[in-house]
């Protein structure tokens, strides 16, 4: 049995982010690039629970809005806000589903090796709440979602722009997301189609 402390070490995704971050050091933004381009977009798709979360909720549709900006030469910043409704399995009686709002901030970068795909990462935050009032203090499984529960996490992202012209981009986004929940981390796989419009 691996100790809690060791597990936290091995699991600390922040360390991974940290190393990734420093691999980006050479491309740290200079003021000449920041916000030299900007886009707004909408995205819709499906989100699939991965691993243990599959036992808790079913797959779902999601929708999100996005702001995307030039950060450096071949690096873009992204800010996203979205919503998904996760139905619980039929044998779970406390409530039929959970509302989830999410926000993400991150960067994606165009590496020549995998062009035209962009590889990105960033931080996620999810806010959740059961769609029915329950008694939080009875401490039965699921009861903590009686009120807002939120947690942070990290994601890796692949972005494939399929169609581009001067003002519009249509493409596909895929994300592998890890939320820092206990007693185990939670994972979700997201895949969707987006439409972006250039602001400037």
């Amino acid at each position: 049995m691996i100790s809690e402390k060791k597990r936290r070490f091995l699991d600390a995704p922040l360390l991974v982010i940290f190393v990734l971050l420093f691999s980006f050091l050479e491309s740290v933004a200079s003021e000449d690039f920041i916000f030299s381009e900007a886009f707004v977009g909408l995205e819709g798709g499906n989100v699939y629970p991965v691993g243990s979360v599959q036992e808790a909720v079913e797959q779902s549709f999601y929708g999100q809005a996005e702001f995307r900006y030039r950060y450096f030469d071949a690096t873009y910043g992204l800010v996203q806000f979205g919503y998904a409704y996760f139905k619980t399995h039929s044998d779970f009686k406390l409530y039929p589903g959970v509302h989830q709002f999410h926000g993400r901030m991150g960067l994606d970068h165009s590496f020549p090796v995998i062009h035209p795909i962009l590889l990105g990462f960033g931080f996620s935050c999810v806010w959740t709440r059961a769609d029915t009032k329950v008694d939080k203090l009875d401490n039965s499984p699921g009861s903590s979602l009686e009120d807002n529960e939120s947690e942070f996490g990290v994601f890796l992202n692949l972005n494939l722009p399929v169609f581009k012209n001067e003002n519009y981009v249509v493409g596909v986004n895929a994300y592998m997301e890890q939320i820092w929940t206990l007693p185990a981390r939670s994972h979700m796989f997201w895949m969707g189609v987006y439409l972006q419009r250039r602001l400037w």
Partner: peptide, 23 residues
């Protein structure tokens, strides 16, 4: 906005009472 890391979120639905960490 922030959080103490380790909310259960969806893990809550599948974690028996005895194994539930503090919220």
């Amino acid at each position: 906005t922030g959080n103490e890391i380790g909310d259960m979120i969806y893990q809550d639905l599948i974690t028996p009472q005895k194994e539930r960490p503090t919220n």
